[in-house]
Amino acid sequence: MNWTEEAMKARLVRYADLVPCRTAFIDTRTPGSTEKENFTIIGAGVSESADQHVHITERHGFNIGAARQPFGCVNSQHSHDTAEVFVVHSGHWRLPFGPNKEDGSIDIGPGDVASVPIHMFRGFEKLDEGVGFLWTVLGEDDPGKVTWAPAVFEAAAGHGLKLAKGGRLIDTSQGEYALQDVELAEATGTDVAGELKTPPMDKLRECVVAADAMEGNQNSPLAANGVAEAPVITPKLTGDGFVAGPIVGWWLHGFNLRRLTLTSGAYVPQHARREVEVIFVHAGTLEVSWEGGAIVMGAGDTLSVPIGLPRALRNTASVDLVAFVVRGGDAPAMPEFVDY
């Protein structure tokens, strides 16, 4: 395919162009949760609302989403069937565990990453003043539906929201006629909730990497003067020189997560990948160039790079570039550098 700038821009989602949904989930009217914004950037996501906008529908083997919340705003306790990874772009956040937040919590801040195990209740809430942004990765093309803690159904019912079987949100605030010919999902029973057990806190701490603990891998094929690639989620030994860790997980991820840093002027020569690759700019400016053109990304922007497209990366700004990169599969292969 001839990847023109126009074609590549269709794979670019700028932060300023993100389309939020404020009715994505059953807790959207529950006090404390009314101000949250949900985004589906790549893939189907797990939204329960027909109003959710999907920016890039192409299947990647994983989903990319985001959440934006002000101080004190809460995302209610829920469980996922596939991996859920939080990359903190801005703000300080708490991840409480257990159906009623009784099983402990972990706090994360800018640049930190947390991968919460499947089949356990978790939520997230904004701790500090101002609006914060979480960039998220969900496992698999179909990440399934959210399992809500029992108390979430009770709170939502009091504000006119019910959940149909299959995960569709029903608004009954204008009358019960909205439930005609609709089979409602049953609230999560105590038996089901009891099976979604929280692992010990020492195990959960293995699922978090602080920004200042991310160290570049000297064996990375991208490593060069001013360029460092740090492992964040590596389920097993990879073909491109990364050992398992620091987050491995005892559940399937189906992707690798790396942090890429480039000092001012640093450059990664043209190379192609056999895996799908998604780049998220955490801080700074990144130029992605290829034979057909170039795109300059800023903080908060997300780009899906086509498989097999030779691309070069350059930091064109006077400050360091920090980006998070998702690569499909548990064991990405060596990149193929272009010979001139």
Rank of each mutant, 00 (worst) to 15 (best):
Q69W: 01
D27S: 13
C73M: 08
H282G: 12
V319P: 02
Q180G: 05
T302C: 12
R273G: 05
D17V: 01
P96R: 07
K165M: 13
G111M: 05
G32D: 04
L184A: 09
G32V: 01
A299T: 13
I170W: 06
S173L: 10
R258N: 14
T188L: 10
R11F: 03
E195A: 15
T147C: 05
R258M: 11
V208C: 10
E37T: 08
H80T: 12
P150V: 03
L179T: 15
N38H: 14
D191R: 14
A187R: 14
W148H: 13
E186G: 14
A114H: 00
H253A: 07
V74R: 13
D128W: 01
R205A: 11
P150F: 03
G175I: 04
P200M: 06
R94Q: 13
S49R: 10
T302F: 00
M297C: 11
E291S: 14
A228E: 14
L309I: 12
G284M: 02
A228I: 05
D112P: 00
K126C: 08
T30V: 15
R168W: 00
G98Y: 10
L196Q: 03
N2R: 10
P269A: 07
E84T: 06
N75T: 12
A178E: 12
G241A: 08
P143A: 07
V19G: 00
K165G: 13
V182A: 02
V182I: 15
A187Y: 03
S304N: 09
P70T: 11
Q174I: 00
G139D: 02
H282T: 04
V319I: 11
H92G: 13
H80M: 06
H89W: 04
V326N: 04
P96N: 02
H271I: 04
G308I: 07
T23N: 14
R122C: 01
F324I: 02
A7L: 14
P231G: 10
V243H: 12
V54Y: 05
L161Q: 12
R122I: 03
C207P: 00
A223G: 03
A213S: 13
V281W: 11
P235K: 07
H92I: 09
N217V: 06
K162F: 11
G65Q: 04
D112I: 05
A299V: 00
R59Q: 14
Y267L: 13
F324Y: 15
G111D: 07
A211F: 02
L12K: 08
C207R: 15
L196M: 13
I307L: 11
D51T: 12
C73K: 06
V209S: 06
D240H: 10
G160R: 04
S318C: 06
A155M: 11
A164N: 08
A272S: 15
A210D: 00
E84D: 14
L127H: 02
R94G: 07
P310T: 05
F97G: 02
G292I: 04
A10F: 00
I106F: 08
S318I: 03
A149K: 06
D212Q: 12
N217T: 08
L163F: 08
G111Q: 09
Q77P: 00
G65P: 06
G72N: 04
L184T: 10
T23Y: 01
Y15F: 14
E183V: 14
W135V: 12
G139N: 02
E6R: 12
W290E: 05
C73T: 15
V131T: 14
D191C: 04
H119L: 10
T261Y: 00
A24I: 07
A67N: 13
D212G: 06
W290F: 06
P221C: 09
V54P: 00
V278L: 02
L138Q: 13
P269V: 12
